[in-house]
């Protein structure tokens, strides 16, 4: 079954087209990397899927149902690019996690955040904060996880741990993952599919074909550096 089905979707900011007639379908349990140059419409696509922007043309379906706020809040977990939070913000990790449903200690253990549950969120490192934000998104047991360049500003080691964690969530929990990223090198090692966007769907294929798809999207000069699990 398609977790996300997008048909003839278009969106323009002040008359400037960002997405034109895009159609694709992401099956349940897939781990899709969404790639494309800056300004190609990736974040706009995420915002449309999250209901933050209304589609100007076309349709979006989640598990066969037309998109609604109730479904998005129930089925989709979202990890934004970077949580910009004041360094004085007084909230413990547990307080933040409790904002999105009852505390799931099993989930926290799996994400490796159990040990700092009573620490102030702002005292954590960037990688630890990102884990908490993922836990926050997963706290309500979503079926789909949308992440918008979540590894920006995180060191390489933490990035790899983070991707491995996503892969584990996808493999073991069958969470459908849509990861917007510029880090094309990680795709063959962690993702199942790759969707290339540049105002329209340029290509959509298995992650193993990433080098060819990257060339199609970014041009012949694109060079891929592989990550290894």
């Amino acid at each position: 079954m398609a977790a996300i089905k997008v048909k003839d979707l278009s969106f323009a900011y002040n008359g400037f087209p960002v997405l034109g007639d895009i159609s694709f379908s992401i099956k349940e349990g897939d781990f899709v990397a969404v790639i494309g140059p800056n300004g190609s419409g990736k974040t706009t696509l995420a915002k449309l899927l999250l209901g933050m922007l209304p589609p100007q043309k076309g349709s979006i379906q989640l598990f066969g149902n037309p998109i609604s706020h109730e479904q998005v809040s129930k089925w989709i977990g979202y990890v934004p690019q970077k949580i910009t939070i004041d360094k004085l913000f007084p909230a413990t990790v547990d307080e933040i996690l409790a904002l999105n449903g009852p505390l799931d200690h099993r989930l926290h253990e799996r994400l490796g955040i159990e040990s700092f549950h009573d620490k102030r969120f702002t005292e954590l490192s960037g990688g630890q904060q990102q884990r908490v934000v993922i836990a926050l998104a997963l706290q309500a047991n979503p079926k789909i996880l949308i992440l918008d360049e979540p590894s920006v500003g995180i060191d390489l080691k933490t990035q790899r741990e983070f991707y491995a964690l996503l892969k584990q969530l996808n493999d073991k929990e069958n969470v459908t993952i849509m990861l917007i990223t510029h880090d094309v090198g990680m795709i063959p090692s962690y993702c199942k599919s790759v969707l290339c966007i540049n105002h329209q769907v340029c290509c959509y294929g298995p992650a193993s074909e990433t080098p060819e798809l990257v060339k199609k999207t970014y041009g012949q000069l694109a060079v891929m550096h592989h990550h290894h699990e």
Binding site: L50, M52, H69, S73, I85, F89, I96, L99
Partner: peptide, 19 residues
Amino acid sequence: YKQLVFSSFNQELAELRSK
């Protein structure tokens, strides 16, 4: 309370969580 704290933490995520 919960929504107020949530939107103080992150407005975007809070709006996604609850109308």
